[in-house]
Simulated assay, not measured.
Amino acid sequence: MTTVADVIRSAAKTLREAGIDTPEHDAKLLLAEVAGRELRDVDKAMLLGEQWALDDAAQIRLQAMIARRAKREPLQYIVGHAPFRYLDLAVGPGVFIPRPETETVVQAGLDWITQQRLYAPRVVDLCAGSGAIGLSVVTEVRGAEVWAVELSPEAYAWTERNREAVSQRDPSAGYNYHLEQGDATSPLTLPQLNGTIDMVITNPPYVPLAQIPEQPEVRDHDPDMALYGGSADGALIPEQIIMRAASLLRSGGALVMEHDISQGDRLVAFARAQEFAQARTENDWTGRPRFLFAVRA
């Protein structure tokens, strides 16, 4: 019988030849998914030279998943879910895959809520995507009420699926999470909330049209609507989000918005011109300027 290490070596060779940056890691995750195990179980099995008995159906499924990954389909689409902070979110074609750097955006928002001693914060998540940001807020801040907006019907369906999963585990959080399909930049979206929101937190489309991503996983699979910022420099939609946030926020409310590393200075200046008394760019975990933090005058 083939050892787990042999399976991983063979799969990693296929993925490496396809240009995958992390072939061994991806192979381990795919095997863990098929076998219903954890990643640490695969590592332990490889170390101890263990053999796992996979039935024919499991072996066929594993080979099919490896073939899909070799064609540069995102790993998260293949396994059907993606981790984000304390959540495991359902994802697939039509929805943007949540990134680790966006976790720093959420953390900045939660830190501000704590510093302000807000016990029942009113939060809006514009461009909700999979629901990663808003669902993190509503599950991690007890008493928070979140309104989330998503325009894409495909992404909206994934958000609703994740909202339902959260509701089953945490009915109170599910009750306090309100999902609306609409244009996050439009003044006609959530107009009843204007001037009442404590925090707008968002990861809008911001990739410059002049900088098409090189990675096939991003370029060919992430939805264009979730990627591109509507102009050559990618700042058009983020600027529209700043304007919408200025209307939604109460005086003293905060905007936390992810952006491209090239857009920091421009968006800080734009925010200051849109009734934000304070505005600055903060770094992600890699030390790159990643998000705008601005406080409404």
Rank of each mutant, 00 (worst) to 15 (best):
Gly174Thr: 13
Ala128Ser: 10
Tyr177Gln: 04
Asp111His: 12
Glu180Val: 01
Thr114Glu: 13
Arg169Glu: 14
Arg122Lys: 15
Ser167Asn: 11
Val146Thr: 00
Glu164Pro: 12
Leu179Ser: 02
Ile133Phe: 02
Ala120Met: 12
Arg163Phe: 11
Ala173Asn: 03
Gly134Thr: 01
Val124Ala: 03
Leu118Glu: 14
Trp112His: 12
Asp125Glu: 00
Val137His: 05
Ser152Thr: 12
Ala128Phe: 00
Leu110His: 06
His178Phe: 07
Ile97Thr: 11
Gln116Ile: 11
Arg122His: 13
Pro93Asp: 14
Glu154Cys: 09
Gly143Trp: 03
Leu135Met: 04
Ser152Lys: 03
Ile97Asp: 02
Ile113Val: 14
Arg99Cys: 06
Pro153Gly: 11
Gly174Trp: 11
Gln168Gly: 15
Gly134Met: 01
Leu118Asp: 15
Pro153Lys: 01
Glu101Asp: 14
Pro98Leu: 01
Asp170Gln: 09
Ala157Gly: 10
Val137Asn: 01
Ala173Lys: 12
Ser152Val: 11
Trp112Met: 13
Glu160Gly: 03
Val95Cys: 09
Gly94Asp: 05
Leu135Ser: 03
Ala165Glu: 10
Glu101Pro: 09
Asp170Gly: 11
Gly174Asp: 05
Gly174Ser: 06
Arg122Asp: 12
Val138Glu: 00
Pro153Phe: 15
Val137Tyr: 13
Ile97Tyr: 00
Ala120Glu: 15
Thr139Lys: 00
Glu180Met: 09
Gly109Cys: 11
Ser167Arg: 12
Leu110Ala: 08
Tyr156Arg: 14
Trp147Arg: 06
Trp147Ile: 03
Ala132Lys: 00
Pro100Lys: 01
Val95His: 07
Tyr175Arg: 14
Pro121Met: 09
Val141Ala: 10
Ile113His: 02
Ile113Asn: 07
Ile97Arg: 02
Pro171Ala: 10
Val124Asp: 07
Glu101Arg: 05
Glu103Gln: 10
Pro98Glu: 03
Arg169Asn: 13
Ala132Met: 08
Ser172Ala: 06
Pro153Leu: 10
Glu140Trp: 06
Ala148Ile: 00
Glu150Val: 06
Val166Ala: 02
Pro171Ile: 07
Val146Pro: 00
Val137Ala: 02
Arg161Lys: 15
Arg163Gln: 15
Asn176Pro: 11
Gly109Thr: 05
Ala165Ser: 06
Ala132Leu: 04
Gly182Val: 02
Glu164Thr: 10
Glu160Met: 04
Pro153Gln: 09
Gln168Ser: 13
Gln168Asn: 15
Gln181Thr: 01
Glu140Ile: 02
Ala128Leu: 05
Asp125Phe: 02
Phe96Asn: 09
Glu154Ala: 09
Cys127Trp: 02
Ala165His: 08
Val105Arg: 10
Glu154Trp: 02
Ser167Lys: 12
Gly131His: 03
Gly109Arg: 03
His178Gly: 04
Gly92Gln: 05
Tyr156Lys: 09
Val106Gly: 01
Arg163Asn: 15
Val166Trp: 04
Ala128Glu: 02
Trp158Thr: 08
Ser167Asp: 15
Arg122Thr: 13
Ser136Gly: 02
Ala120His: 08
Val105Trp: 06
Val95Lys: 09
Val123Gln: 00
Pro171Val: 01
Val166Met: 05
Gly131Lys: 08
Tyr175His: 14
Ala155Ile: 11
Leu110Ser: 09
Ser172Phe: 07
Gln107Ser: 12
Trp112Asn: 13
Arg142His: 10
Tyr177Phe: 04
Ile97Trp: 00
Ile133Leu: 07
